[in-house]
Simulated assay, not measured.
Amino acid sequence: MITVQNIMTPVKTVVQAGDALSRTLTLMQRNRHSCALVVDAGRVIGLLTERDLSDVLTRSLERGCLDDRPVSEVMTPEPVCLAEQTLLLDALKLARDLHIRHFPVLDEGEALVGIVTQTDMANAYIRILEHQAELVQTNQTLELASLRDPLLSVRNRRAMDLDLGRMLSQAQIQGQSMAVGLLDLDRFKSYNDYYGHLAGDRALRSVARAVEENLRQGDTLYRYGGEELLLLMPDTDLEGAWQGADRARQAVERLNIEHVVSPLGRLTLSGGVAAGRGVGAEGLIAAADRAMYQAKRDGRNQVRAARQAPVIARDDCAGSVPSE
């Protein structure tokens, strides 16, 4: 926590009560200070500010003379002082409530050690706000990074969990259908084994980019795991979900990425979709997963839809095959 000790100005412009006003003004100008501290035997007894000088100058001009006089006749007597350990916020509140712009600062023995002005406090508070803004920006950047897959630059499984819960609640409130699509690259293990993992990473990035570029507005793509992608499609029925997933399949097919190990000769994907109202996340994804396995069994490079909204647990697409 910042205290006035951290921002105060060291004592320089200190005068005695009997010092001439002209000498004090010269000292303030030389030190570029907006006020002077008036002391007697080491104790602060007054404060001479620019406002005090302006008042005496105005009165002197009105009388038609500029007479010199001692500081004690012009100063503000018994100024409010702050302890070194006074918190910045407390000092600012005091300045606001008492309409004070200058505070002498005293140590534990009540000896004068400095002066803090309203400008000093305002500048310090601004620096705090700027630092807090930087921290907020940094935290937001880190939070966004934690929700994105570093390889594919799409949202990750953690982001999917957050978004899916929110979207399902919204769909339930509005009585809308919610759809998901699971997309899995065909024979991708064989692709990695043949071409190498660096080539596999490049292929994955190309696939994710192609799929994302062909999404409807409002749909979101996630990396579900490995080479598996998931589509969230709010306010979408089963037919619309199938069309969205098939657009993704066609986008990957158009990439025409060579895959000599595949009977199709190029990298493809298979997909499964499911949709329903008032459906839990697990049931929806499980139904899409079964439909995707059906697409694998039917020859790959195609999209299958769950035959029924996953309201109850049932095996819409029985059996399983390796996901490659």
Rank of each mutant, 00 (worst) to 15 (best):
L98D: 12
V39Y: 05
L147K: 08
T58S: 04
N123M: 11
I45T: 09
R158D: 04
S146N: 06
Y125C: 04
L164I: 14
H99Y: 14
Q132M: 10
V80T: 15
H33R: 06
C81E: 11
G46M: 11
V113Y: 10
L57I: 06
I128E: 06
S60M: 07
V74I: 15
V105L: 09
A95I: 09
F103G: 01
A145T: 09
R59K: 10
R148P: 00
S153D: 15
V74P: 01
D68H: 00
A91N: 08
E130N: 07
I126H: 10
C81I: 11
R166F: 14
Y125R: 06
L135G: 01
D67M: 00
H131M: 11
L92V: 10
L66D: 00
V105M: 06
S60Y: 02
H131V: 09
R51E: 09
L164W: 06
V38F: 08
L164C: 11
P70C: 02
A41V: 00
A111Q: 15
D55Y: 11
A133E: 12
T24L: 05
V56H: 01
I128T: 07
S153H: 15
T49D: 00
L21P: 01
S153Q: 15
V39A: 06
V154P: 07
L87P: 02
V116G: 01
L27F: 11
A36M: 06
D120S: 03
H102N: 08
R148M: 12
R148I: 14
I126T: 07
A145N: 05
I115W: 09
Q140R: 07
R148T: 13
G114N: 02
T49W: 02
D52A: 02
H102L: 07
Q140K: 05
E130T: 12
V113W: 08
M167N: 04
E73N: 05
L135I: 15
S153L: 14
E84A: 15
Q85D: 15
G64N: 04
C65T: 12
V136E: 13
L152P: 04
L168H: 06
T24V: 11
T76H: 03
H33S: 14
S146A: 15
L89R: 03
K93N: 09
D68G: 00
V39Q: 05
L37Y: 06
P79A: 11
A41D: 09
L37K: 04
L147N: 00
R43M: 01
L147V: 06
Q140S: 05
D52Y: 05
D97S: 15
P77A: 05
L88W: 08
L61M: 13
N31Q: 14
D149M: 09
A124Y: 13
V56I: 13
T26P: 01
R157C: 01
A83Y: 13
G64W: 12
N156W: 07
D52Q: 03
V44Y: 05
A124V: 13
R155G: 00
N156E: 06
K93C: 04
